[in-house]
Amino acid sequence: MTAMNLIQALNSALDVMLEHDPNVLIFGEDVGYFGGVFRVTDKLQEKYGATRCFDTPISEGGIIATAIGMGAYGLRPVAEIQFADYILPAYDQLVSEAARLRYRSGGEFSAPITVRSPYGGGIFGGQTHSQSPEAIFAHVTGLKTVIPSNPYDAKGLLIAAIECDDPVIFLEPKRIYNGPFDGRPDTQVKTWAGHPQADVPEGHYTVPLGKAAIAREGDEVTVLAYGTMVHVALAGIADSGVDAELIDLRSIVPLDIDTIVASVKKTGRCVIFHEASRFGGFGAELSALVQERCFDHLQSPIDRVAGWDMPYPHAFEWDYFPGPRRLAEALKRAMEYN
């Protein structure tokens, strides 16, 4: 075991897979010689050579088209889109091609590609470096969407994604690259040092896609979250004094419906917590599923705490960002409902 931050854990996953499988190769804007703007591919080109880890033109559509072609040939490419906000030029490739290639070809071709992309807010990145687009991928059948919340999971999930035979969108919450973040921008920045999930094995291991983790056990309300919001939720739960159970979904497709349903049946209450704006967000799907499957067990309305429905506003980042206070209020509302 080695103490790693999330960046180092992702780098270790890529290192392990480059070592392990000659069909794995990595490319994206600035990922080669420079090692990536967030350093996730640091030293990989130096260690494995330019054909295993290389820079690309500024062309998200071209990057994903290339990856799909390589996947069809039999490789397992890992493409980086520098910010999830810039993934939209590749959306056609992901939706019309990667997600459907296996289906439409009757199983003759497939695209076993992994698309890594830093996402989410909390870094004063304005509307082009802060968005949370997970719902637009979750809606597309044929894609898997994974969002880790800590270094241990990040490494295991990324290895599982690369080994997966389906296209995987791997969204990296950039606010927690260097340390967990409780949603309070005015408190001192924490690092991953000393965090139990920053203890990461050096070698190969996987965390299966589609298996949620219970980040905090509790009896009164179920909180569903992923990525950065797992840490914000822990702070909000502590503030509220409510004995909430926190589920870290880890992947939203496939979704661990069994863990969600078991928890809500136990607590009878559910609050969904995500950074992305609320209307049509992934929380809407979670809310519908919980209602369909746990209706008789619910003691209060399912609530959603999410970003406001607007473009990500730069100066108002902390007014927009759903912090621990908003979650705590929702938890209290749920408990007071009768």
């Binding site: 559509g61 071209g62 088209a65 290339t66 990856a67 799909i68 072609g69 390589m70 996947g71 069809a72 040939y73 039999g74 490789l75 490419p77 056609d92 490739q93 019309s96 091609e97």
Partner: peptide
């Protein structure tokens, strides 16, 4: 949409 797949396939080769 498949024009770039051909390039990726060729790069893989």
């Amino acid at each position: 949409t498949r024009f770039g797949h051909a390039v990726g396939w060729a790069m893989a080769s």
